[in-house]
Computed example of a mutant assay.
Amino acid sequence: MADFRSDTVTQPSLAMKERMFSAALGDDVFNDDPTTLELQSVAAKLLGFEAALFAPSGTQTNLIAMMSHCQRGDEAIVGQQWHTYKWEGGGMAVLGSIQPQPLELQADGSLALSDIAAAIKPDDPHFARTRLIVIENSVGGKVLPLSYMRDVAALAKDTGLNCHIDGARLMNAAVALAAQHQLTPLQMARELCQGYDSVSLCLSKGLGCPVGSLLLGSNAFIARAKRVRKMLGGGMRQTGMLAAAGLYALEHNITRLADDHDNCRRLAEGLTALAAQLPALRGKLTALPVQTNILFTDVELQLAELLLPYLAERGIKLTGSNYQSAKGDIKRLRWVCHLNISSDDIARTLQAVTEFADQV
């Protein structure tokens, strides 16, 4: 089976399971789980922060961050397609009483600096108090460059705002950018975080852990964050079994993300070639550009409604959503490559699409 639905579907390897099984355990609520303390210390040092906090999910670490930076009635500037705004159940508003100020994304996935600056409210009781800028990197598989990340951090500093990175796939961005900056992926990740007050790093996506996310920041920030985590029900006990998976992932699963990027490019190139060669797909399937491990393909709706069940019958899973385009009704399919997608899976998927087109 080739499960392209998300990089959250990854299964822990045998080596990761062995690390989890043998982890030293304590009680994290009492702050004495040794493996969790080690994970938090290691992650903070790797990314250049004073401290870190382990939590069950990236949704929770993002919410903890926003509630630690902002008070009731404060405002956070976000992107309209950011996970923090669109895909986290409205938690910042519902649970944090934080007003989101969503901005339209640019074609490259960024927020225009001029739009961010224009959205910052003056100190006036008519307005919510702007307190935080949230950036996501990578976003929908697109990588925001180091120069842009630095510009946003500088803007936040100049305007007296805090800034947070939703880095659910930060390591994918780091791997994609490292070579052009002549840095290792870990060095690149650290550079992307410089100047930011906090970052959320998901362990259960491309890094392959079964559960968990880290929030990183200053000692004072993490002290506030720990209190918020408790309020949100995120205080767990023998977390060392989960933290051990995180330690394994940071040691072994970062540089290998390049394999996922390569597989995703091969998939995009293969689908593009098939769309050019096969009459049933010509003009009806378009693969969008790939930067990391996520590929989007636009498929004519009627064709997609035949393609998806055909692939599912052959153990190939993916997700999609409908939208209107100038060409008519389109389904945008999302293919996510990860450590459980092999080069053979890519070849088998392309063969299945070929066989489908021959039968349509």
Rank of each mutant, 00 (worst) to 15 (best):
F4M: 14
Q11E: 13
K17W: 05
E18V: 03
M20P: 03
M20N: 05
A23Y: 03
A23R: 01
G26R: 11
D27I: 10
F30H: 02
D32A: 09
D32W: 09
D33R: 10
L39D: 04
L39S: 06
S41T: 15
A44G: 10
A44C: 09
L46S: 07
L46E: 09
G48E: 02
E50A: 14
A52R: 01
F54D: 02
F54C: 08
Q60D: 04
M66R: 02
H69L: 05
Q71Y: 07
Q71H: 12
E75N: 08
V78H: 01
V78W: 00
Q80P: 00
W82P: 00
K86F: 02
W87E: 12
G91P: 02
G91V: 03
L95E: 10
G96M: 06
G96C: 09
Q99S: 07
L103C: 14
S110P: 12
S110N: 15
K121E: 12
D123S: 05
P125L: 14
N137T: 15
S138E: 09
V139Q: 09
G141T: 05
V143F: 03
L146W: 08
S147M: 11
Y148F: 14
Y148V: 08
R150K: 15
A153T: 00
A154N: 10
K157F: 08
H164E: 06
A168R: 02
N172C: 15
V175Y: 05
T184V: 09
M188N: 02
R190V: 09
L192A: 12
G195S: 13
S198K: 04
V199H: 01
S200F: 02
L203E: 07
S204M: 11
K205W: 12
G206A: 07
L207I: 14
G208Y: 05
P210F: 06
V211A: 03
V211G: 02
G212Y: 04
L214A: 10
L216Q: 08
G217V: 12
S218T: 15
S218A: 12
S218D: 10
V228Y: 06
K230P: 00
L232I: 15
G233Q: 13
G235L: 09
M236V: 14
M236E: 08
G240M: 09
G240A: 08
A244Q: 06
A249Q: 04
D259M: 05
N263R: 14
R265M: 14
G270S: 12
T272Q: 13
Q277N: 08
L285Q: 01
A287Q: 01
L288M: 10
V290N: 06
Q291E: 12
Q291V: 00
L295S: 13
L303R: 03
L303M: 12
L303A: 03
A312C: 03
E313T: 07
Y323S: 01
D329C: 00
D329L: 04
K331E: 05
R332T: 09
R332C: 04
R332G: 00
R334L: 11
R334M: 14
L339Y: 01
I346K: 03
R348Q: 12
T349R: 08
A352L: 07
V353D: 04
V353E: 02
T354H: 11
A357Q: 10
D358E: 15
V360N: 01
